[in-house]
Each structure stands twice: as C-alpha cells, then as structure tokens.
C-alpha cells in the first residue's frame, strides 16, 4: 500500500480574479504523496499554501493542471471528472486553522455526522466517535456544544472528525495554531500514526518548526511555487 500514490498533482496553477485584479496564487505545482506518507507544507503567509491544499481537497478548483487521488483523475483544470462530493465524503478528511464545527451539534455529534453521511448506524457511529474523542483527550466534553469548548478542544474535535471516515487522504491547514506546543505535537504525531498505520496520505500546512521531525517529507512554497525543502534533521525520505 505504501508504494501506491495517494495524491498526485500535475502542473496545478490558480489565478484569482482577472485583468487588473489578477493574482497568480499558485503556479505549476506538481507533488506526489504516497499512501503512508506524511508531508509538511511550509512557506510564508500569502505564498499559496491554502490555495494548493483546497485544490487538492476538491473545494477550490485549479485554473489548470490535474489532481489525481488514489490514481484516479478527479480534477482536470477547473473541470470535475467525477462526483467531488462522493470523493470528499469517502476519501478526504479535513482540518482547518479555525475549527469548523457545526454550532448546534455536540462534540460527539460533530464527529458522528460524518460517519452518518457515510451510512454507518447511529450506535456504531457514536461508539467510534467517542473512541476518537478519547484518543484526542476530549472524551469528557463529548456532549458539550462547540461554544462550550476552548479553541484547542474544538480543534481536537475537528481532528477527530477528519479521522472519522478512515479517509485515504488527510489535509490539514495550520491545524495546531490554536494548540499549545505539546498538544500540537500530539496532533502531528496522530496524523503520522494514521498515515503509517492506515496508509493515508497526509499533507499538513504548518508553521510549527518544533514538530517537523514528525514528517517524512517537507515542501516549501514561495510566491505560488512549490519545491522540496531540506529536512532540518537530515532525515532522508524513504523512496
């Protein structure tokens, strides 16, 4: 499994606006992420990281280039080649900078809803949701509404939600910004564990220099251009 490619992007570019207001946010981004590989995406703010991540996540179509998930061409330029919603539902887990929880659902329900959308039963969904919350250390807040949780707790619920469906790829955009460094590291290690144990391909946009050793590969973005970065510990990627 770890030899197959979870994510492939071929020459992705994104142009926002047109004419005078045109912004080239991403150019010719070609990246491969294997199943079981954890990738960090670094780069200054405004360099196009979120643009790249949302293009891979099938929520922000690229202007040109292709996105392949598990070997299947999903986006060809701005055109969807298949049901994006089905792909998002089955294959992708998202975590964003701001926790994106549904305000009228409790913590456990926020995780459960994703499994329910995928057709699992209520009891089974709840059990797995509670297990995930346990793993992330927020089991005791399972029945609280998001407004009753701290930013860090909300973020951990969001991580639990991203993992709920056993997705084949996980996309996280600065997921640890609201966490203290030990919790932040814990979340990164959890991503790595999901990648290594379950063969998911993981891309994490992060600024947190302290947790970089968790990642297999580092990419860096600048002015819309993406490239391999030197690993600080000289850790060599296995392929």
């Amino acid at each position: 499994m770890s030899e197959s490619l979870a994510i492939v992007t071929e020459g992705l570019s994104k142009i926002y606006g047109s004419g005078n207001t045109e912004v080239v946010a991403m150019r010719d981004a070609s990246v491969e992420v294997k199943h079981g590989e954890v990738v960090a995406l670094l780069g200054p703010s405004g360099s196009g990281k979120s643009t790249f991540l949302t293009a891979v996540g099938l929520i922000n179509p690229p202007t040109t280039g292709r996105v392949l998930i598990n070997g299947e061409v999903v986006m060809d330029g701005p055109r969807a080649m298949t049901s994006l919603r089905r792909f998002r539902r089955r294959e992708i887990g998202y975590v964003f900078q701001k926790s994106n929880l549904i305000p009228f659902l409790s913590a456990v329900e926020n995780v459960q809803i994703v499994m329910e959308i995928n057709g699992s039963g209520a009891a089974e969904g709840r059990r797995r949701a509670l297990d995930l919350l346990e793993e992330l250390g927020v089991r005791d807040r399972a029945d609280n509404l998001p407004s009753m949780l701290s930013g860090g707790q909300q973020q951990r619920v969001a991580v639990a939600r991203a993992l709920a469906n056993h997705p084949s790829i996980i996309l996280a955009d600065e997921p640890t910004a609201a966490l203290d460094s030990s919790r932040g590291r814990q979340v990164m290690e959890l991503f790595a564990q999901v990648a290594h144990d379950h063969g998911a391909g993981v891309i994490v946009v992060t600024h947190d220099q302290r947790a970089l050793d968790v990642f297999d590969t580092l990419y860096e973005m600048e002015d819309g251009l993406i490239g391999r970065a030197e690993h600080p510990e000289g850790k060599r990627v296995k392929y």
Partner: peptide, 15 residues
C-alpha cells in the same frame, strides 16, 4: 457556514 461544512464533508443535497 454549517451548510458549506456539510457540503465539505460530502453530505448529499437531500440532507
């Protein structure tokens, strides 16, 4: 926001 989120996680339109 909730609706966008439901779409993000792939909820069908019927939901």
């Amino acid at each position: 926001h909730t609706i966008a989120l439901l779409k993000l996680v792939g909820a069908p339109n019927s939901k």
